[in-house]
């Protein structure tokens, strides 16, 4: 039991590390790889939680995560990047050290916020909750600081990872129906984003979201 808790803690640390990695990584391919790694850690930790708590359905979610977030979504993103010939991210809005500092502040904030929950909870995985919350917030931060549409999608998917992590760690996972639904939503969202990007790319000749400000009607 103790070992399992330590494994989960270690995996959580890795998830957080990949989240930070994604926050600062400029190169598109490496970013997608990091996202796939995060999915893998998530999948393993879900399987460990399932083993430890004796929840069978967590194995299924683990497999789902593995196939979807480690294989399918990164593959789609890779295809997208190759087709659209994007390799380097354009300049971020905020510079890297400041982004890192904000990220650190968010982690501290999450620990502070979940302190009462950690005291009340009796679950083995309770120490993971602040990390899951931090992953969500860092994903959002990534969406804010990046200008490229594809990185924004990765940020969005990272947020979803964080939510999933929070669900497994706080309550040993949502009911299977809900998880299947969420997985399907994410998949479909990725497809729709992909199609949209092709169209945006053809009409704006760029995937820089700042270009989309032109859509706003003038005063």
């Amino acid at each position: 039991m103790q070992i399992a808790a330590q494994i989960i803690g270690f995996l959580a640390a890795l998830v957080l590390l990949t989240a930070f990695g994604m926050l600062v990584q400029r190169r598109m391919t490496a970013l997608i790889h990091l996202f796939a790694w995060q999915g893998l850690f998530l999948s393993i930790s879900t399987a460990v939680v399932g083993f430890m708590a004796g929840q069978r359905h967590l194995y299924i979610s683990s497999l789902l995560t593995l196939s979807l977030k480690v294989i399918l979504l990164p593959y789609i993103l890779h295809v997208l990047v190759r087709r659209l010939r994007i390799h380097r991210e354009i300049e971020t809005v905020v510079n890297v050290p400041l982004t890192m500092l904000i990220g650190v502040a968010l982690v501290i904030f999450s620990y502070h916020l979940t302190a009462p929950v950690r005291e009340l909870s009796t679950l083995v995985t309770r120490s993971v909750l602040p990390i899951a919350l931090a992953t969500v917030l860092i994903g959002l931060l990534m969406m804010i600081t990046r200008r490229h549409a594809v990185t924004q999608i990765i940020g969005f998917l990272a947020m979803e990872n964080g939510l999933f992590f929070a669900a497994t760690s706080a309550t040993y996972g949502m009911p299977l129906v809900v998880e299947l639904g969420v997985a399907l939503d994410v998949l479909i969202a990725a497809f729709i984003f992909g199609i949209f990007f092709f169209h945006i790319h053809t009409s704006f000749d760029s995937l820089n979201v700042e270009q989309m400000a032109r859509l706003k009607e003038g005063d």
């Binding site: 809005v93 904030f109 916020l113 917030l137 959002l140 931060l141 969406m143 804010i144 600081t145 200008r147 924004q152 979201v209 700042e210 989309m212 400000a213 032109r214 859509l215 706003k216 005063d219």
Partner: peptide, 25 residues
């Protein structure tokens, strides 16, 4: 109020970010 509508995605994301943080706090 129209000035809130910048038309830039980042700005809208910042609105949701701040809202989440404020609600959490």
């Amino acid at each position: 109020l129209g000035r809130l509508q910048q038309g830039r995605i980042q700005v809208y994301l910042i609105y949701s970010f701040i809202t989440i943080i404020v609600l959490l706090v």
